[in-house]
Nucleic acid binder design. Structure first.
Lengths: 205, 205
DNA sequence: CACAGTGACTTGACGATGTCAAGATGGCTG
DNA sequence: CAGCCATCTTGACATCGTCAAGTCACTGTG
């Protein structure tokens, strides 16, 4: 209903941000199904109906948390990409490594961000946060885009590969093998598919 | 009232299957957040507490629906793979096409199947259904596995790419472009990355 | 400084949901 | 036929999202 950039509106002092922070903590500690309006309110020290004045119901709070989570995700990717060798191959590998790490360390938040249908209304805000996070990917993929081809092809190849791997990793779906370390061992070989990137983009279909 | 098999164990006649079927219908018609124990019970024509005698709460029903959904997914993949050219490239392309189609036509069920943490308990049952669905992928990928390499590498490359594309497609995440047809146009070029599969394996060809 | 006014939050209530305990029902076995 | 027991129903309770009305504190204006 109102903007979120006020410093100390009246009573609590940026309750909206406090509720988002509480929500992220609940997500981290207890999982997605424990994310509740009343629980966020209690954690922030306000009554159970207070969040209604800042978000459009539970869906609105989830959308706001997803937006903040997407921004944290973006910063995590930037930090991760800066680690390791700074040639195009090294940067894209570090980016994907950071993608997987973030998904693993923030499972519920990661799931919320990418949960289909979690963003029925206001796709505008999420779209903005998404675009900036997508921008990190776009920069990193740019050196691999062949001249004259749609950059979204390479971007979607990379994004799909690392997102699919991360999501399947979290879902526990993978070959009959078991054990996290076993699956981690698959990361580098699977990412090796990216070595062929750019050479795989053929003429326009 | 109920369709399906008429075994009639005691009263209702395979209420468990009827509840799963009701749940899938609710999923298809109304989305994931409308999947409720009481709603499934009402649709199956039983009282609100009846499901408790067949599933371990809502989580148990969701797991059972996921298991059934995974089997339908497997059959859909088999059917889709049989369409089109039957050379290794044609089969894997048709498989991926069917993957995306299933995700698009059964969004909520697809999300439930792969929802992280939706399977906290009994991973055994889902593991079985998963293995058979994974088996379809494994067969289709087999011609592309270089000698002496772990087949899971190629399998995970393909699975991650198509799953990531499908999931991002449903989540509405993709470049600044918009429109479903626009995203569908990305499918074939992105799948072209699979043309390099097998040659990307670490060992020399 | 007094006094409304307005926004931030609280309180209380309602329907819906998951879950549990106890009772009713009906087929199966002895 | 009688008893058993899985199956299902009924009723209750705590929690949840949401709404309406009320309370509180800060702010601007005289």
């Amino acid at each position: 209903m109102n903007n979120q950039t006020d410093k100390k509106p009246h009573h609590h002092g940026d309750l909206a941000a406090a509720l988002i922070q509480s929500g992220i903590e609940i997500l981290t500690e207890s999982g997605l199904d424990q994310l509740t309006l009343r629980r966020c309110a209690a954690r922030a020290g306000v009554s159970h109906a207070a969040p209604a004045h800042h978000f459009d119901g539970l869906a609105g709070l989830r959308a706001a948390i997803a937006q903040e989570g997407f921004d944290r995700f973006r910063r995590h990717l930037l930090h991760s990409r800066a680690q390791g060798p700074q040639d195009p191959e090294g940067r894209i590998f570090s980016l994907c490594r950071g993608y997987l790490d973030f998904a693993e360390e923030n499972q519920a938040l990661f799931a919320l961000i990418f949960s289909c249908g979690a963003l029925p209304q206001n796709p505008d805000n999420l779209k903005a946060g998404e675009t900036t996070a997508y921008g990190v990917l776009r920069e990193t993929c740019a050196p691999f885009v062949p001249n004259g081809t749609d950059p979204r092809i390479v971007e979607t190849q990379v994004w799909s590969l690392i997102h699919g791997f991360s999501h399947l990793f979290l879902a526990g779906i993978f070959g009959p093998g078991n054990g996290r370390s076993d699956h981690h061992a698959l990361f580098a070989p699977v990412m090796a598919l990216l070595n062929q990137i750019g050479t795989a983009a053929p003429d326009p279909n």
